[in-house]
Each structure stands twice: as structure tokens, then as C-alpha cells.
Design a binder for these strands. Structure first.
Lengths: 231, 231
DNA sequence: AAACGCCGTAAAGAAGCCGTAAAAGCTGAC
DNA sequence: GTCAGCTTTTACGGCTTCTTTACGGCGTTT
């Protein structure tokens, strides 16, 4: 779940690509490039970018065609780029599914601001599973709230972090290293005692019998596993 | 759930309003009008439009101020309108939360196309609540007013900003970082003391017992959470 | 059987965090 | 320019959480 945004630039002119690459990279975006419509569609499919900047004039096919084909399967925001300023042109592009339209020459600052606006408007594409429910236990990742039979359970930071990680991979095994790296940081990967203490308290708070755990199962020498939800 | 989109036009010039009204109505949009910033915010709160067209130059207050206040509680797409074409101006507006920016004079067709693009991009428009009510506490985001059992409560700017953010995410946990970044700016993310002081005063003014808070719950080391409304 | 590795529990000390109060600094209104 | 109100700074007591340390049980290995 990285929060660095990926932007796909589709343009045949190397100068423009370089210009955009430098401008965007300076804002900590990860830039993917393509110099043809076909290549652009391929990159879009492969990389799943958060935003596409698409030039109208392309050697192999018209930018409109690329946009149309992209829109057949992807809702990713698209910013169109063009030298032509004709109004009909803009209308065509916007109605074909573009989210914004900028005519060259344009100011860098404005372009970057429009990029920010488009990224802001598009919600997280990865609508991760926001709540997990097993038996009476409910882990609500969006609300950061844990309830047991509708009763809220108070958890400390580490307790919640561990439980949330187990819940995010409910049913699957999570290794001690994964848990320690995620919750305590990469420098504490060997302190497996911490884990035992936190898991102990979790089981206590969740009413889980350590001798025969029904919720948090321990895989000796490897890690822990939260009971799988009923699918 | 009617599928005719409501568009709110905020502009003081009657000529422009008429022009927009006719243009938009011809496309089967329902047009709501306001000629001042205050009136616009009120209409936005009352009608929950699907799109807002906002002129920068308004008699009572700057368009930026209106946008900022609107963005405190509503994610509705906003198209800014202006005679000024300065790039800095556009950047400011877009970064303040505008989704598009068109400079007068503009072509109708292009404007309509941009309207279509904005409406298309936002599938779930009315996720905005202009007011939140929990127990006796009522936070009116649109009017910037807080009442406790019908009695108005006087809050300072920071106090209101913090409470508004909690109310906008009522029931969900808001981290200290989110609050600090939003209210004090990105440079003060570490000054968690500020938060404690403001929250302390809020609880005092709202009659919330800090030892056993019923309204503003603290999640130690993480953030705060306003009690969830009864759904 | 003894030794070892791993797990779980308990308790105490350390560290960090929360809430309050009050003083100092700043800002906008008049 | 003054003043009031708001914000930031500073200081401190109390509490929660985390870390450390110690110990006993269970299963496997030697």
C-alpha cells in the first residue's frame, strides 16, 4: 500500500516527455512513459497508474482512440494534452471520457495543480476490505474499532496493530517476522517475546483460551493465524 | 433517487447567471442559483447539489473563502469561473479544492463538456453531511455553528476546526497527524500538545468528563474519535 | 532422563502520553 | 496605541503503555 502515485505519460515527443518526467518526478510522483498509443495502453494495463496524461497527437493512432479503448476497462483519471485549442476538439475529448484538457503551451504550475486536483478527486482505487468478522469478533479497519459481540474492546496501539494485521490476512498465516517488522519496525525482528506478550493480552481481552485457541491460533516457530471468516 | 443532476451556480452577475441557467437547463440539469457567497453556502447545505459552479469575484466574500468553507464539509465537485487568467490564481484555486477552472470568456460547449466530465467522475456525490448530531451536540458544518441542547456554544477557530474534523468523520478515528496537518498545517505535525489543550477546552465547553468521555473519546497515542451518531 | 527451544504468564521499572494550569506572545478590533 | 481574546509556550502530576526481567510448562531432541 504505497502512497506514492504512479502517473503514466503517453506522448511521442521526447522533449515533452522529458519535461513532464522532470516536473512530475520533482513532486515525488513515479513516472511511467510510453511513446505510442499501443504502448500506452499496454503500460496502463500492466502498471495500473493513478493518473494518465495523454497527448492527442500520436504517431500510431489518434489520442481519442486511445482514450476510448482505455475507457472500455479503466476509470483512471485522464488529463488530455494538445496543441490544438479548438473548442470542438476539447468537447470531443471530454465527452470521450477525459477528465481534464490542457492546451500547449501550458504553465507547469497549473499543470501540476490540475494533476493534484485529479488525484485528490479520485478515491483510493484499492478499496481494501474495510471490516473482518469472525464469530463474535469484528475488526473494523476503516473505523479502527474492534467489537466482541457488539461490545467495543479497548486495545492499545500495538495490540490493535497486531490484530489488524492478522485480520487483514484472516485465515492465512502471518509470520512473526512480518508482524514484528510491521508493528515494531525492522530493527526488532528478533524480539519475538514482545509478540507473545501482546498476543497473550489479546487472547485475554477477546476471551480466547490459550490452551485451545479458537480465534488466534499459534503456529509454533512460525507465526499466528486468525480464524478464517465464513467467506 | 432522481437522475436529473442539480447544479448550483454562485455568481453575482445576473447576466452570467441567466446565461448559465439557460445553457444548463437546455441540457436537462436542474439549476439552483445564488448571488452571494453566504447564499451559495446555504443553498449547498440545503440542496446538496451534484456540482457547483463558483465565480471568483463575489460581492460579500472572495470565491476562495467560499470554496474553503464548502470544502470543510462537502466533497461536491466545484468548477471555478473567473475573468482573471493568472496561473498563480488557478493554482491557488485548484489546490484549495476546486476540480476545474475556466476563465471567461469561455465557450458554452466546452463548459458543458467540462460539466459532464465532472459529473461523470463523481459517482457517489452525496456523501456529504452538512450537519452532525450526537446526543445533545449539534455541529452544523455549513453554517459553522455548534449548539448543545439548542444552546449555541462559542468556539474559537482552532476549537471549531478540530471539532468539525471530528464531526465530519463521526464515529471514525481521526489521527493526531490528520488533525494537526489539517488545522495547524503540515509543519506542526509533531506538536501534539496543542491538540491536548484544544480538546481539553472542547470537552470543558461541551460538558464532557475527561475521565470518562462520552463525546470525544481519546485513543491513546493515536488520535481522537467523536461518538458515532445513531446511524 | 536431561537438555533444549519455544510458548505463555506475571510483575516491576522505564518511558511515553494525557490532561490541566498558568504565563508569555501574538493578532485583530476598536 | 491599547486592549481583549486567542494561541503558543512552559511546567508538572498522574496514568497508561511498553519494555525488561524472571519463571514454569510442554514437546522434541540428544
Amino acid at each position: 500500500m504505497s502512497d506514492v502515485k504512479r502517473i503514466l505519460v503517453i506522448d511521442d515527443e521526447a522533449a515533452i516527455r522529458k519535461f513532464l518526467r522532470i516536473s512530475l518526478a520533482s513532486q515525488n510522483y513515479q513516472v511511467i512513459e510510453a511513446e505510442s498509443g499501443e504502448g500506452g495502453l499496454e503500460q496502463a494495463a500492466l502498471n495500473g497508474p493513478d493518473l494518465v496524461i495523454l497527448d492527442i497527437g500520436l504517431p500510431d493512432q489518434d489520442g481519442h482512440a486511445v482514450l476510448t479503448r482505455l475507457r472500455e476497462w479503466s476509470p483512471v483519471p485522464v488529463l488530455m494534452l494538445s496543441v490544438r485549442a479548438g473548442e470542438g476538439e476539447k468537447v470531443r475529448a471530454l465527452d470521450a471520457g477525459a477528465n481534464d484538457y490542457v492546451t500547449k503551451p501550458f504553465g507547469v504550475q497549473e499543470l501540476l495543480a490540475r494533476v493534484r486536483a485529479l488525484l485528490r478527486a479520485s478515491p483510493a482505487p484499492n478499496a481494501a476490505l474495510s471490516a473482518v468478522e469472525v464469530d463474535g469478533l469484528r475488526v473494523d479497519l476503516a473505523y479502527r474499532q474492534v467489537t466482541l459481540n457488539e461490545m467495543p474492546i479497548a486495545l492499545t496501539r500495538k495490540e490493535y496493530a497486531v490484530l489488524a494485521m492478522l485480520a487483514a490476512h484472516a485465515g492465512r498465516l502471518v509470520t512473526q517476522q512480518q508482524l514484528l517488522r510491521e508493528v515494531w519496525g525492522p530493527t526488532h525482528v528478533e524480539h519475538t517475546h514482545y509478540l507473545r506478550i501482546v498476543v497473550g493480552r489479546l487472547r485475554q481481552k477477546l476471551g480466547d483460551d490459550p490452551a485451545a485457541p479458537a480465534l488466534i491460533m499459534t503456529e509454533v516457530g512460525v507465526g499466528y493465524r486468525l480464524k478464517a471468516p465464513l467467506a
